[in-house]
């Protein structure tokens, strides 16, 4: 066999394996995570699941002990924060009860049926990703429990992520903190829309497209109607939004759920029809709705230009907001 004279055998094997790795990367990226790569992933995960269950059950008390130990130092502050939160929640509960009564009255007047609650499956986190860059969790419920790809995952705090791969026994959830995930959100207080982008362990970035829409510290961001069902709490704004170069307002927000410390989660039986979402994936900027040529000039009419049904529109600014876009190699 031909071999350059100055390349020894280990170096030759190393170069061969590097080339093989690069070929694998290329093939897998071209297949977008499905095909042979997807089948192999599902196979390996299926084989590993029983072992992971046993090891997880065995190590959970040990990990729990050390976790509790680290929590002791923060208990006093946590207690104080929770007391304040209880007072605030009691106030909100009273408001909510009043609103519920009013909604029921209005529904009765308009003869509307209240929307059905989404079915959900409770699951427990079984495994984490293999590295610090893998923002995903494996949960112990899969296809046999009715879970499919794209379903949203929440806990008591709010949105956690969405299902990106599923086997018969388990499912993989990509967390909202993953830099490749973007979530279309709405500011609960004002109703203005924007896009939230993950940045790993750092706070998420909120981008608002209406520069006149003030966002203040403590504002709660909820899912806009898109890939996720509308109205799920996602994040809490940490700083007032400031104008950046360009046309948007930017600020940072932290997830309302403790994403890195989740244990039990709920998978919502909700999948959006993907028609119209595919085209928006991988967009860095929201689509700007351009009025037709024969549309009336600014000021002639208050009516918004016509938009596609699948594209939620920003309020009052004539811009659309993208669906929370997925990632290149899901599934």
């Amino acid at each position: 066999m031909w071999r350059p004279t100055n390349v020894d055998r280990p170096t030759g094997v190393f170069i061969g394996l590097v080339v093989l790795s690069l070929v694998l990367v290329t093939v897998d990226l071209r297949a977008s995570g499905v095909g042979v790569g997807g089948t192999m992933r599902e196979g390996v995960q299926t084989v590993f699941t029983p072992v992971q269950r046993v090891v997880s059950a065995a190590t959970r008390p040990v990990a729990g002990f050390f976790e509790d130990l680290s929590d002791i130092f923060s208990l006093r502050g946590e207690n104080r924060r929770l007391r304040t939160e209880v007072i605030e929640l009691e106030r909100r509960l009273e408001e909510a009860e009043i609103l519920e009564i009013r909604i029921a009255e209005l529904e009765a007047i308009l003869s509307l049926e209240p929307p059905d609650e989404l079915d959900s499956v409770v699951a427990q986190v079984l495994a984490v990703g293999v590295s610090e860059f893998d923002h995903s969790r494996v949960i112990d419920r899969g296809r046999t429990d009715g879970i499919t790809v794209d379903m949203p995952v929440v806990d008591e705090g709010g949105l956690i992520g969405r299902v990106v791969a599923v086997t018969d026994e388990v499912a993989r959830v990509r967390l909202i903190t993953d830099p490749s995930i973007r979530v279309a959100v709405r500011v609960e207080r004002t109703g203005e829309t924007g896009v939230l982008t993950g940045r790993g362990s750092a706070p998420m970035v909120l981008e608002m497209f209406n520069r006149d829409a003030a966002v203040v510290e403590g504002d709660i961001l909820i899912t806009a109607d898109g890939r996720f069902p509308a109205g799920i709490a996602v994040a809490r704004v940490l700083e007032p939004a400031r104008s950046e170069v360009g046309f948007s307002l930017r600020t940072i927000a932290e997830p309302t759920a403790e994403v890195t410390r989740i244990d039990f989660v709920r998978v919502l039986a909700f999948t959006r029809d993907r028609v119209g979402i595919q085209d928006l994936e991988d967009l860095e900027r929201p689509p700007v709705i351009i009025p037709a040529e024969d549309a009336p000039a600014e000021g002639e009419s208050d009516e918004a230009p016509p938009v596609e049904d699948e594209v939620p529109t920003g309020e009052g600014d004539g811009t659309g907001v993208p669906e929370d876009t997925g990632e290149g190699a899901g599934g």
Partner: peptide, 21 residues
Amino acid sequence: GLLEDLLSQSALGLWALTLTT
């Protein structure tokens, strides 16, 4: 590395390349 790739969502071959190195 290949096993790590298969247990994660990273592109197949990335960890393989890293751990071979």
